[in-house]
């Protein structure tokens, strides 16, 4: 108990002191995870929406597969992306391993299934509502996907936040493909893992508190935005 209270008091002094190094790490975390979620949004949401609207053979298998992939361990994604990006791997010539780009790629693989699975559920529910109207207006299924993606944009914010939460909090993938290089690929989670292995538990918890704070802040912003949007188009 004493250790824990010590850890939290250290966390607050760290926050109050606004450590420059910590700020750098937070910024990199936001950039990497933010971009991964951006790509996840561009890939995962349309993919999920297509699965929610389309009716084709093999669709159910895909849905089950996608839902299963939501729980894909980040370490597995990390190892696979590592082997692909390694100098001895298929994309080795680009030399992307141990770079921020590699971390963005790994996290994109991590968040796409999650975001697609949530989008599939949201859009499928909306499709049930609108199917007759849109079909009667002679929308082709692909155009229906576009209409529904736009119409569900507020609910799909949940998918974006879930993706962001997953990306910001995972450690396995970025550790393997980023290498946790100081000032280069060290993000919040790998920094926490490092401080934990150094036995500096107070600093680890302090960084964890910062991470939690950042995620909470992002969620709060999203919540306010959503409230505003709901009032506008309730």
């Amino acid at each position: 108990m004493n250790g824990l209270s010590l850890a939290f008091s250290e966390a607050f002094s760290l926050l109050a002191g606004f450590d420059h190094r910590v700020a750098e790490i937070v910024l990199l975390s936001l950039q990497v995870s933010g971009l991964a979620v951006l790509f996840g949004t561009l890939i995962g949401l349309p993919l999920g929406a297509c699965l929610g609207v389309g009716r084709f053979p093999g669709r159910q298998v895909l849905v089950v597969l996608l839902n299963g992939c939501m729980g894909l361990p980040s370490v597995v994604v990390g190892v696979v992306v590592y082997l692909i990006l390694s100098r001895s791997g298929p994309l080795g010539e680009f030399g992307l391993l141990y770079s921020a780009t590699a971390m963005v790629i790994a996290q994109t693989f991590l968040v796409v299934p999650l975001m697609a699975a949530i989008a599939r559920q949201v859009v499928e529910d909306a499709w049930r509502d609108y199917e007759e109207e849109l079909t009667a207006m002679r929308f082709r299924w692909f155009d229906s996907v576009r209409v529904l993606l736009h119409d569900c944009r507020h609910s799909l914010m949940v998918a974006v936040l879930a993706g962001l939460g997953r990306a910001m909090s995972e450690v396995g993938a970025v550790m393997i493909v980023g290498g946790n290089i100081d000032r280069s690929t060290r993000v919040m989670t790998t920094a926490i893992a490092l401080e934990t292995s150094k036995g500096d538990l107070p600093l680890a918890i302090a960084l964890g508190t910062v991470l939690l704070g950042v995620i909470l802040l992002l969620n709060a912003v999203a919540y306010v935005l959503r409230q505003w949007a709901t009032r506008r188009y309730a």
């Binding site: 990199l28 950039q31 933010g34 971009l35 951006l38 770079s99 921020a100 780009t101 963005v104």
Partner: peptide
Amino acid sequence: AVFSVTAMV
């Protein structure tokens, strides 16, 4: 966003 990551890298 893309520009900033390129700059970062």
